[in-house]
Computed example of a mutant assay.
Amino acid sequence: MSEGIKDTSGLSEAAAQSRASVLRSRAESYIALSRHDAAIADLTESIALVPDNARAWRLRGESHRVIERYDTALDDFDEALKLEPDSAYALGSRGQTYAAMGRLEEAMADFEHALTLSPDSLWILEAKADALVDLDRLDEALTEHGKIIALNEELAYSWVARGDLYQRMNFYPEAIDDYTKALEADPDYVRALSRRGEALRMADRYEEALADLNRALELEPGNDRALGSRGAVLSELGDNEAALKDLDAAIELDPDYIWAYRVRGEIFQELDRHEEAVADFTRALHLEAEE
């Protein structure tokens, strides 16, 4: 039971409604604090008191979704949508749940319905774009990212998200442009610096890449991806000793960092350190097989 819960049998209807309302409000604060089990306890009591409140079902579903209890979350969102069939929030959240379960077509149906009700909802557009990427419908995902950026060009995250998609599609100049836009909005955005550094590396612009990755690591020294990328850049610039130091640090931070093993293996191979190269390639193959 959540904090302060008491025996509620025998409450009048007005008292039950009042208690249920306070429980819902407290649950929202628990959710903001990421105390989802406490939120679920409050919402469960609230639903027992007032079963026809769609918000309570939706909030409980959201808590279940965040802690990856997806089947239970779906049940709650279904109940919320029985009470409020045109809730864009419940539809979007249920779509996110379907997407997390790999049920992408059902997710898309919910996102499409939600966007007919709330066409400018950034988080639903983002969720739809992510689902389109998972469906390998990348051009359509780009269109959704364009809509997101058009709604608010000041959001650095939105430029980075589209930049990441461009990079996935090997459109490196476009990715670099988007990361640059993100950094105009937020000059110390580590992800934008790290990802632009990687895109610059892929475009063979190594000195510029190094500058971005150095800045990213000044801001966040323990960023394993930036360390891995800088290691690759340093290797391209002929400094294998420094490259290995970065890759060692990246792997120490994330022992399952497949790409870092592959790059380090290639450097070992170039240095005729073949036993170490074999060990890294073997580790990379083992991790890939586990995915």
Rank of each mutant, 00 (worst) to 15 (best):
M1I: 13
S2I: 12
D7M: 14
T8W: 14
A14R: 10
A16G: 04
Q17F: 06
S21P: 00
V22S: 12
R26Q: 15
A32I: 06
H36A: 05
A38F: 03
T44N: 06
E45A: 09
S46A: 15
I47R: 07
A48F: 08
D75L: 13
D76I: 03
E84L: 11
P85M: 10
Y89A: 15
A90Y: 06
G92M: 10
Y98H: 11
A100K: 08
G102N: 02
L104R: 10
E105P: 03
D110W: 02
D110A: 03
D120I: 11
L125N: 02
A129W: 05
A131P: 01
V133K: 10
D134K: 15
D136E: 15
G146Q: 10
K147V: 11
I148N: 02
I148F: 01
Y157Q: 15
Y157E: 15
Y157N: 14
W159T: 00
V160H: 01
V160I: 09
R168A: 13
Y172K: 04
I176W: 05
D177R: 14
D177Y: 10
D177I: 09
T180M: 11
D188V: 05
R191Y: 06
R196H: 04
R196S: 06
G197N: 08
G197P: 08
A199P: 05
A199G: 04
A203E: 05
D204N: 11
Y206N: 00
E208V: 03
A209D: 05
L210Q: 08
D212I: 02
L213P: 00
L217C: 00
P221Q: 06
N223P: 01
L227E: 07
R230D: 03
R230S: 04
R230K: 09
G231F: 01
A232P: 06
V233Q: 09
G238S: 05
A243V: 05
A243G: 07
L244Y: 00
L244E: 00
L253Q: 11
P255K: 07
D256V: 11
Y257R: 12
G265I: 06
G265D: 03
F268V: 00
E270A: 15
A284Q: 00
H286C: 13
A289P: 07
A289Y: 05
